[in-house]
């Protein structure tokens, strides 16, 4: 058996540094894992064992019970399963969509030049504002939308000819990320009205669309940095060989960007997986997701710690599985293989 502290390559660090590394890694692991252990222990307790004081070891200082697990998994079976399925569907599809949209946009912002004209943007803003004003004033929203777009199309050419100021890629990127500044609390009611108008309340689709819009800016920003760090020579070589942009992206860029893509996918998946406020407003029965169930355990009786612990634990299992499966793609073996192959 090889000594784990032994030095293997010039990049390796000294045994003493390795020892320190292990101490630090294990120390932080303990900080991360202890609260989770406490959740696991709490899920096995009766209310009275939670209230009487801290007990740490099942069988040793309290008698464990599966009551909370039975209640959540069997007695409430369907009421747990439905949000669970919703969470999986909404989380995966919104993260997947956000990754596709966001990473292509990020690539475009790194490799292409955009010069949107200030005049056109201002015109668009004016048209949008006028359309909203009309809707608030009682005009049917379909009519307002169509006429807003029509006015924009009519005036666009004239305005574009006169306006000289342009924006750059950086401005587009900043505009995208700025969409995340406003706290969700301020936008959920308008979103509710929006989805109510188009009849999408309490559907998975509404949640997926909202999460895509909310998470795409993060994907763009993270992926932009990963793309910028990629060596451009490979793409140049492919372009010289006559490959199309799509082909270059698919067979040159994406394979090298896998670590970034995986990390970003995990982050957006987690954001969508765990989102609470938008879900609570946009869903009522069919489309409820798991965070709502967790929050619901704090009701008139105070938090039902045991049930809450069970829910949190079953909620993180799929994400952990995803992380375990995807983690290997964040490692350099794949990357080097892709670049060389």
């Amino acid at each position: 058996m090889a000594n784990p502290l032994r030095r293997r390559s010039p990049l390796d660090i000294s045994p003493a540094a390795k020892l320190v590394s292990y101490v630090l890694l294990i120390g932080w692991s303990f900080i991360v894992l202890f609260p989770l252990y406490w959740l696991a222990v709490t899920s096995l307790k009766l209310p009275v064992d939670v209230d009487r004081g801290p007990f740490y070891l099942p069988f040793v200082d309290f008698q464990p019970t599966l009551a909370a697990w039975r209640n959540i998994l069997f007695e409430l079976g369907d009421d747990t399963l439905r949000p669970y399925v919703n969470t999986i569907v909404v989380g995966l599809s919104s993260a997947g969509l956000a990754l596709v949209l966001g990473s292509t946009a990020a690539y475009a912002l790194v490799r292409f030049t955009y010069r949107p004209r200030v005049g056109l943007i201002a015109l668009g803003a004016v048209c949008v504002a006028a359309a909203y004003g009309a809707i608030l004033g009682g005009v049917p929203w379909q009519l307002a939308a169509v006429s807003g777009v029509a006015v924009f199309a009519l005036l666009a050419q004239a305005v574009a000819r006169r306006s000289r100021g342009t924006l750059a890629n950086d401005d587009i990127a900043f505009w995208l990320i700025s969409q995340r500044i406003l706290p969700p609390i301020a936008i959920v009611i308008p979103l509710y009205v929006l989805f109510q108008q188009v009849g999408l309340l309490d559907t998975q689709l509404a949640l997926v669309l909202t999460y895509v819009a909310a998470n795409v800016p993060i994907v763009v920003w993270l992926m932009r940095d990963y793309f910028m760090a990629l060596p451009v020579e490979l793409e140049e070589a492919a372009a010289v060989d006559g490959a199309s942009v799509y082909r270059i992206v698919r067979s040159v860029v994406l394979p090298i960007a896998v670590p970034g893509l995986v990390a970003t996918f995990l982050i957006t998946l987690i954001f969508a997986w765990n989102e609470y406020l938008i879900a609570v407003v946009l869903s009522s029965a069919k489309a409820q997701t798991m965070p709502l169930l967790v929050a619901a355990q704090d009701a008139t009786r105070g938090p039902q710690w045991w049930a809450m612990s069970v829910l949190v634990l079953i909620m993180i299992v799929p994400v952990i599985i995803m992380a375990v499966v995807l983690e290997r793609y964040i490692s350099r073996g794949i990357l080097v293989g892709a670049v060389k192959g």
């Binding site: 692991s29 965070p291 809450m308 949190v312 993180i316 994400v319 952990i320």
Partner: peptide, 17 residues
């Protein structure tokens, strides 16, 4: 994997924890 764990828990769950 362990270091990623806290991020995977819903913020509300982390709050109660």
């Amino acid at each position: 994997i362990v270091f990623m764990l806290p991020l995977t828990i819903t913020p509300i769950g982390v709050g109660y924890m």
